[in-house]
């Protein structure tokens, strides 16, 4: 007897599509929303790693850092218009962020509705600290991203003076006298670290990658990537604040 799962799945798909043409609510189900969060989250994690790599160029000096930033604007030129690639990239990121936040908001509202009467006593059995920080940590990260773009991308907020050089913006903005800017940055990056610790694990489980034999490895990968990203983003501003770069 054929016990192949795929052949049967295909057979079932054909049988069902002849029966009903109506799109099911399963496309908007909690599982589908969570999958959208996982895919957009993966896009954002990959972006963060690339962003962190660019930031670390600060240790190679002003020329390398500014050259890298300029290179991003030229990427794909002349095949694409100038800054063409950058804008496609930005639109993909913006769409990812919006889908991620939309899904999170809908799922949070659902979860609140799913338990209107709370427990008098609750106890943590095995959940990670990171899993507590996902929702409010996410809000903090979103607020930080707005500030971050206004500060270092648009340079509308320019502690220490505006500049056309990305390197100078960074060095001006994280001087010791602007310790509160650095503090906000550090807090946000740590929030990102916690967000990634649970988010990477959760995203992989949502996309069906969790197997009992793999669970430890997925968690180790989540902790590892979260740590690398956290440290990688903390180094440049702290190096400026403590006078190692300037």
């Amino acid at each position: 007897m054929d016990v192949g799962l795929n052949s049967n799945l295909k057979w079932q798909a054909v049988a069902n599509s002849t029966l009903t043409k109506k799109r099911s609510t399963a496309y908007g189900s909690t599982v589908a929303l969570k999958s959208a969060m996982a895919v957009t989250g993966a896009v954002l994690v990959l972006y963060l790693i690339a962003h962190m790599y660019g930031n670390l160029k600060v240790f190679s000096g002003q020329e390398a850092f500014d050259g890298y930033a300029h290179g991003l604007r030229e990427l794909g030129y002349p095949l694409l218009p100038e800054e063409g690639f950058l804008w496609v990239f930005r639109l993909v990121l913006l769409a990812s962020v919006l889908i991620h936040i939309y899904s999170a908001a809908v799922l949070t509202i659902r979860a609140r509705k799913a338990r209107t009467q709370r427990y008098v006593v609750t106890k943590r059995v095995q959940r990670t600290y990171s899993s507590y920080t996902m929702r409010w940590g996410g809000v903090l990260i979103a607020l930080f991203v707005v500030f971050h773009i206004l500060h270092l991308t648009v340079n509308a907020i320019a502690p220490g003076g505006a500049s056309d050089s990305p390197y100078e913006r960074l060095v001006n903005g994280f001087q010791p006298e602007f310790w509160y800017v650095t503090l906000f940055y550090v807090a946000a990056v740590i929030a990102v670290g916690f967000h990634l610790r649970h988010g990477i694990w959760s995203g992989m489980a949502t996309l069906g990658l969790n197997k009992a034999s793999r669970q430890g490895k997925i968690n180790a990968a989540a902790v590892g990537i979260a740590l690398i990203v956290t440290v990688g983003f903390l180094l440049p501003p702290l190096a400026v604040t403590f006078g190692l770069v300037g």
Binding site: T25, H198, T206
Partner: peptide, 18 residues
């Protein structure tokens, strides 16, 4: 089954593992 559990007002899974 997923449609029915959503219909019943259960929340969504966030892979916390409790």
């Amino acid at each position: 089954m997923v449609n029915q559990q959503d219909e019943e007002d259960f929340g969504g899974c966030t892979n916390i593992g409790e």
